[in-house]
Every structure is written in C-alpha cells, then in structure tokens.
Design a protein around this nucleic acid. Structure first.
Lengths: 166, 166
DNA sequence: AATGAAAAAACTCCTGT
DNA sequence: ACAGGAGTTTTTTCATT
C-alpha cells in the first residue's frame, strides 16, 4: 500500500463525515448523500484509504455495557530507563487502552478500563512498580469521539502582552 | 429501541473482536470466521446492537494525516459553577475531542486536537478564561484503541499491608 | 465524473432439525 | 437455537461517453 499524500477537498470531507457517522454506508447511499455517482464515490474513498486518512472501519463498543464501567487516566512519572514503554509492553496489561508519551514531568499518560473498583485497585498496584503515578477516575463522560473534520483556518491569535510571536 | 440487558457468550465476544477489527464484515464472512451460519450471526449481531453493546460503526480517521497533528490532554480546575460543562458547550470548541468529569482537584479532563502549535496557543488562550488548567502535549502515541474484550476474571488483589478490604 | 448494464454478493425468509 | 437453501434486493464494477 503506497501512501500518497493529497489534500481532501470539500467533497472528501463530506464523505469523511458520513463514514465516521456510519462506517457501513454503501457507495450507493454515499453517492446519494453527496450528490455524486457511485463510481466517483468509490474512487474517492479508495484514495482516502490509500492516503492513510481512512485507516479502517470498526464497530463501536460501549465498554460500560460490555462489563468495563470503570475508566481512568493515569499519569506515570517513570524512573529513568524504567518507563513502561521500555521495560514492559502495554499489551501485557489488558486494562490499558491507550499509551501516550508526554512532555512534562509525568512522562506517560495511560487510559485504562476496569470491571470494578476492586479490579482497578489490583491493576494500580501492579502498575505501581513502574514508578510514581497520579490516577484520575472518570466520574462521567460528557463528550466523546468527536469526528475529525476539516481544520478551520487558524483564528487570529492574541499575542501575550509585551511579547511578539515568532 | 428497547435496551435489553444480557450477557455476551464466547461466540458474541468473538464477533465483537472481529467487528472491532473490521466493522464492514458481512454476515457471511463473519459466519465463516466463527463457524456459524449467516442467519445465526445476524441475530447475534442484532442482539448486541439492541443491548447497546454495539453502538454503531465508524470509519477510523488518522487525525494527523487529516491535518491535525497536535494532540493534547488538558486538565481544568474550574471555578465554582463556572465549569466548562455548565457555562459553555464543548461543541463550541471544535478542537475538543473528549470531555470527562473527574474526581480530584482538577474537575475536568479534555482531549483536544490542533493543526499547529500556533493554533494550540490560540485555543488554550480561549480556554483559559474558564479556569486554571494544566496542558499536556502528546509527543507520541505508543498504543491506541485497544478493542474491548471479555473482562478476565478479577485477579486476586493484594490487600494493602495491615488493612482488610471491605 | 456520469450512465447503464452485467456480475457478484449480501440479506432475509422459510423450513427442517 | 442453529443450519441450509431459494429468492430477492442491493452493491460493486466495468465499459463507454
């Protein structure tokens, strides 16, 4: 698969919006919605896939209903050369959903799910071996999975008083 | 749509795994993979949808390739009754991808995307009006979008020394 | 990029076990 | 609750303009 870079146009963005809302739309249905023919739509979607903009299609699963109602963010301050990223694989912890390397004092941000607070307790204790951490339990989620849309042109930035942006 | 609770069995979990990996698999193909007939699979998938376990299907979009390479987590400590959740709608900030209400001192965790650091600067300044905040820039992402799998039975938890779990 | 037609595949219903 | 088959509809793809 060759990744050819290219700029999505307005129609591509409409297709991306539709497919993020319903990834199982047929080319026919998509064509109706963006007022194009099915073959045209098929070619555009292929281009988006080959450019690596569309990376795949997935069923969305409600983790809470699937038995994992506890969501946490954990910030890790790893010992030197003892980072979770170096010593262990995140795949070994089935609770871990995301691993990000951060700027700042706490080098790693984890997102994890557990079946219960008891489960979370055990998980955190296992993790604790890796370094100092801060755990943030999510009480509720107000907003989730905003689809990727066309970046609006940067709004004018107010320079900090007395400073000039370079 | 009536939400009937029910427990997914082993076969349901296999279907969930397949559909999270490829949300566009047909019932025929799914049937082949889990060694069932297409009608049986169709019925199971419907049940998963009606139970609210499968909430939908979506194309996955690479935000970086789509023009938004900057990812940040922001913790907000809101003034009383001036929480982002109360005064403004997250939808008004197109940069915001997720909003979680947290336990602890910082009441809100945001996930946001920007097109550039200049754009991020402007966004953070706009947000700053809402309260004190901590911004964490993601340098790289090591792991992402782990599919929801069957919760393994809770491992035995090591009680903290001198304490009994209740 | 659109049209139209042909080919392929998907879904669903029904029946039987 | 599942398997198998037939029939219908939809989808995809190709060739052409």
């Amino acid at each position: 698969m060759t990744l050819r870079a290219f700029e999505p146009d307005q129609t591509d963005w409409r297709l991306l919006a539709e497919l993020q809302a319903d990834g199982r739309l047929s080319f026919n249905e998509l064509a109706r919605r963006v007022h194009l023919s099915a073959p045209s739509v098929a070619e555009r979607v292929r281009r988006l896939e080959q450019a690596g903009i569309i990376t795949g299609y997935a069923a969305r699963v409600d983790a809470a209903r699937a038995g994992q109602p506890v969501l946490v963010y954990i910030q890790l301050r790893c010992m030197l050369n003892k980072c979770l990223l170096r010593t262990t694989r995140a795949e070994d912890y089935p609770e871990i959903v995301e691993v990000h390397k951060l700027s700042g004092e706490y080098c790693t941000m984890l997102k994890a799910r557990a079946t219960s607070l008891a489960h979370l307790e055990g998980f955190v204790e296992r993790l604790g071996l890796l370094g100092e951490m801060r755990t943030h339990i999510v009480l509720s989620t107000a907003y989730q999975d905003r689809p990727v849309t066309e970046p609006s042109p940067d709004r004018p930035v107010t320079p900090s008083q007395g400073w000039t942006r370079t």
